[in-house]
C-alpha cells in the first residue's frame, strides 16, 4: 500500500524541485506530500492597522422605540466616525455585532490609508493588480476568438468572417467588464462607506 504512494511523492518532488529552487521556496523535504505551487503572487502591502480607539466615535444604529426584550432586531449595524478626518464608516455585513465592529474598523483603516498614501495605498495597489489580471484575461480571450474566427475563415475560405470576429471581440470585452463590475458589487455588499467633509 505504502510503496506506490512513496514512489509517487518522490517523483513529484523531483519534478517540482527546479520550480522550488527557481522561486526561492525551501524544498519540502520533510513533508510527505507537496501541493501544487501556485504562481508566486507579487507581495501586496499589508493591511493597514486601524486607528486608536480614542480617535473613534462609535454608534450602534437602532430605532427610536423600545429595545431589549421588547423588540427583536436582526441587524446590529455599527457606525464609526473617525474624529480627526470626519470619515464615517457603516457596516452591517454580518449579523454579528462583534464582527461588524471589526469590519468597520478595517474598512476605516483602508480608507485612511487611501487618503494618506494615494496611489501607493493598499487598495490602489491591489485594485491595480486585479485590473491587470482581468485585462490580460480579456486580451487572451480576445486573441483566442480572433484565432478561432480566422481558422473558421480559412476553413470555409470566405472573407466575410473577419467582420464577425470583430463583433465577437467586442462582446467578449463587454462580458469581462460586466464580470469585474459584479465582483466589485459583491465585495461591497452590506458595507456602505461615505465620507463627510
Amino acid at each position: 500500500m505504502l510503496r506506490p504512494l512513496t514512489r509517487l511523492t518522490v517523483s513529484l518532488r523531483l519534478a517540482r524541485a527546479p520550480t522550488h529552487a527557481h522561486h526561492g521556496f525551501p524544498a519540502a523535504a520533510a513533508a510527505p506530500f507537496t501541493t501544487t505551487t501556485a504562481a508566486p503572487l507579487k507581495q501586496m502591502p499589508p493591511r493597514p492597522k486601524p486607528p486608536p480607539e480614542s480617535d473613534l466615535e462609535e454608534s450602534f444604529l437602532k430605532g427610536s422605540g423600545p429595545g431589549g426584550q421588547k423588540i427583536n432586531k436582526t441587524s446590529s449595524a455599527v457606525q464609526i466616525k473617525h474624529i480627526p478626518t470626519g470619515i464615517v464608516i457603516k457596516s452591517q455585513a454580518t449579523r454579528s455585532r462583534s464582527e461588524n465592529r471589526k469590519i468597520a474598523r478595517s474598512l476605516l483603516a483602508l480608507r485612511l490609508d487611501e487618503l494618506a498614501n494615494g496611489d501607493q495605498s493598499r487598495t490602489a495597489i491591489v485594485g491595480g493588480a486585479k485590473k491587470k489580471r482581468s485585462d490580460s484575461a480579456a486580451k487572451k480571450s480576445r486573441r483566442k476568438y480572433k484565432k478561432l474566427a480566422e481558422e473558421a475563415a480559412e476553413a470555409t475560405g470566405k472573407e466575410t468572417t473577419l467582420k464577425q470576429a470583430e463583433e465577437v471581440d467586442v462582446e467578449e470585452g463587454k462580458a469581462a467588464e460586466q464580470e469585474a463590475a459584479e465582483r466589485v458589487m459583491q465585495s461591497e455588499t452590506g458595507n456602505n462607506t461615505n465620507a463627510q467633509k
Partner: peptide, 19 residues
C-alpha cells in the same frame, strides 16, 4: 451570533439580544 459565540435558538427560548 453573540460576541464571538454562535448561539443556537429554538422556539420556546428567548433569542439573545445585542444589548
Amino acid at each position: 451570533p453573540f460576541g464571538n459565540l454562535d448561539i443556537k435558538c429554538r422556539p420556546g427560548v428567548l433569542i439573545p439580544r445585542p444589548e
